[in-house]
């Protein structure tokens, strides 16, 4: 401990140069709320910390492109997203969920790029962004690549980002006309604890028939998980009591939760069922 070097590069290209050594003990930091906690607990001691503090003008923005997709710079804070008019218009489920993420102090500094790169399955943004079909831009000295968020989470605190790479942008595609969505989180411990189960549900209703559904569960599982089998039950059917019940039962069947202090495997499967049902009931009313 104590040998860590703190770096504050002024350009993204400098960050990529530093990362190009491929040293897995280097960490990029924006708000720092997650990394400092891990360091305080003695779980990780990086060789170098690359602060993005001086890259705000390059990486902190929310815009929409010509196609109507929303583009978010990775250093955009959770608070920026929470109060932004464009996000309220194009991704209201995100704005609403953010009002219940941690507390304002954390939201003022924690960035969306850090939130995703941390790879923590308990966080609220990943399931919502995944259900909306978001993609992320990952850059390195070797070049850039885009990745669907579905391919991004690899395991418990593990993502597809290689040691020489950095996440720089999040793209939320324009949602089709008539898409409705919701996010429900359920907490078993204190109100400010991480959720036990998170459910993001988006679908399109045409004359009462549901289609294009995207159901993603988080927190209970090691990575945010899209429940394709549940979607198959929903798509093409009336979003009535029978469909919702069948979908919820299927969610129970296919969910593979991890047991921890927030609940046993069986309990979390039950809670996945209950909250998939609640989410769909809510969408049925909209």
């Amino acid at each position: 401990m104590g040998d860590t070097l703190w770096l504050e590069p002024e350009k993204l290209s400098e960050v990529k140069d530093i990362l190009s050594s491929g040293d897995p003990e280097i960490r990029v930091v924006s708000g720092g709320t997650a990394l400092s906690l891990i360091m305080k607990q003695g779980m990780f001691d990086p060789n170098k910390i690359v602060s993005l503090k001086k890259l705000q003008s390059e990486l902190r923005y929310i815009t929409s492109d010509k196609a109507g997709n929303v583009r978010i710079g990775s250093m955009t804070t959770l608070r920026d997203l929470e109060v932004d008019a464009l996000i309220k218009e194009k991704a209201p489920v995100l704005s609403e969920a953010l009002t219940h993420v941690a507390n304002p102090r954390i939201r003022y500094v924690a960035s969306i790029g850090g939130n995703l790169s941390h790879g923590d399955a308990h966080l609220d943004m990943p399931p919502i962004l995944m259900a909306m079909g978001a993609e992320v831009k990952i850059e390195s000295a070797k070049g850039d690549r885009w990745l669907d968020l579905k391919e991004f989470f690899k395991g418990y605190y593990e993502t597809a980002i290689e040691p020489d790479e950095i996440l720089t942008e999040i793209m939320i595609p324009k949602q089709a006309e008539g898409i409705v969505g919701t996010y429900i989180k359920y907490t078993t411990l204190s109100n400010d604890d991480w959720p036990t189960v998170g459910v993001a549900a988006f679908l399109k209703k045409t004359d009462g028939i549901a289609g294009d559904s995207r159901i993603v569960i988080s927190a209970a599982t090691d990575i945010p998980t899209q429940l394709f089998d549940v979607q198959h039950i929903i798509d093409g059917n009336q979003l009535d009591k029978t469909t919702i019940q069948k979908a919820a039962e299927k969610a129970f069947e296919v969910a593979e939760p991890l047991e921890d202090l927030r609940g046993s495997v069986w309990y979390k499967k039950e809670m996945v069922k209950v909250h998939v049902r609640k989410a769909l009931e809510q969408l049925a009313k909209e």
């Binding site: 720092g32 910390i49 102090r105 954390i106 003022y108 500094v109």
Partner: peptide, 12 residues
């Protein structure tokens, strides 16, 4: 901006 001092890197 109010922050949690216990999680804020002094280096920053």
């Amino acid at each position: 901006v109010p922050v949690s001092g216990c999680l804020h890197f002094a280096s920053s």
